[in-house]
């Protein structure tokens, strides 16, 4: 197990990069998912179709294929996902701004894929809000967007938070794929280097990787348990 000590820097920097990837992808997925959910319940049919098509495609395609499209499809279309080089944000998350696009591609793949599940979690939350709430909001003259923003979404959010947490935990685990699609130095890519290039033993290295993921996922799981329990007491 000495590899964990000798190469602690690889695990630490891998953890940090995976954490950044997950944080940015989670934000992206929440944005995509909320947008998708709002489209799916919108009164405008073409918007509903777009929302439904998005969920149908990305919920039902394997994540590996989505990664293939992001990492190899986008470049063949001539995109380096430069729109993610967001000024300010790229000084905090330096990988966003570099020339090598695979970190950005990873965010795109994870956001799009996870967004479809976020969309369904939020939509189930919206369905859990009694129709009378939206009706009362309409009756005092709120528009569709105001209704969502001030009445429906704040309540839907509460009902959706536990399933959303599960979706995000799944996303954190899925982020391990990014290391195999060009992202250099995250947990899985770092581990691969240790075992193949440096010949370190496989089992301790992957124990280290697992610990890295558990540090992110386990506390999130405990937090969700706690939220759920508090909700049950309140009820």
């Amino acid at each position: 197990m000495s590899v964990l000590v000798d190469h602690f820097d690889v695990f630490a920097s891998g953890f940090w990069l995976t954490f950044q990837l997950c944080l940015l992808s989670a934000v992206g997925a929440l944005l995509m998912g909320t947008l998708g959910a709002v489209m799916r319940i919108s009164p405008v049919p073409p918007l509903r179709w777009v929302g439904t098509a998005y969920v149908t495609v990305f919920r039902n395609c394997p994540l590996t294929i989505v990664f293939f499209f992001a990492a190899f499809g986008l470049p063949s279309l001539g995109s380096n996902a430069d729109f993610l080089k967001i000024p300010g944000l790229d000084s905090l998350f330096t990988r966003l701004g570099i020339d090598l696009p695979y970190f950005r591609f990873g965010i795109i793949a994870l956001s799009l894929y996870t967004g479809a599940f976020v969309c369904e979690a939020i939509r189930s939350g919206i369905n859990a809000v009694s129709p009378g709430q939206a009706e009362a909001a309409r009756a005092i003259g709120l528009t569709f967007t105001q209704n969502l923003r001030f009445v429906v979404l704040p309540q839907a959010w509460k009902a959706a938070i536990v399933p959303l947490g599960s979706v995000i935990i799944a996303m954190i685990k899925n982020s391990a794929l990014a290391g195999f699609f060009g992202v250099v130095g995250d947990l899985s890519n770092g581990a691969q280097n240790l075992t193949s290039a440096l010949g370190e033993p496989i089992i301790p290295v992957f124990v280290g990787v697992s610990i890295g993921f558990l540090i992110m996922t386990a506390p999130l799981g405990l937090l969700l348990d706690r939220i759920e329990r508090r909700r049950t007491v309140a009820r």
Binding site: S130, G132, Q133, E135, A136, A137, R138, A139, I140, G141, L142, T143, V151, P154, Q155, K158
Partner: peptide, 22 residues
Amino acid sequence: RGLAKLRSEVGMVFQSFNLFAH
């Protein structure tokens, strides 16, 4: 918007109150 404006001029009270729970 036109309908929203009209609804703002007509008060409505429901059987199940429908107060905003949050």
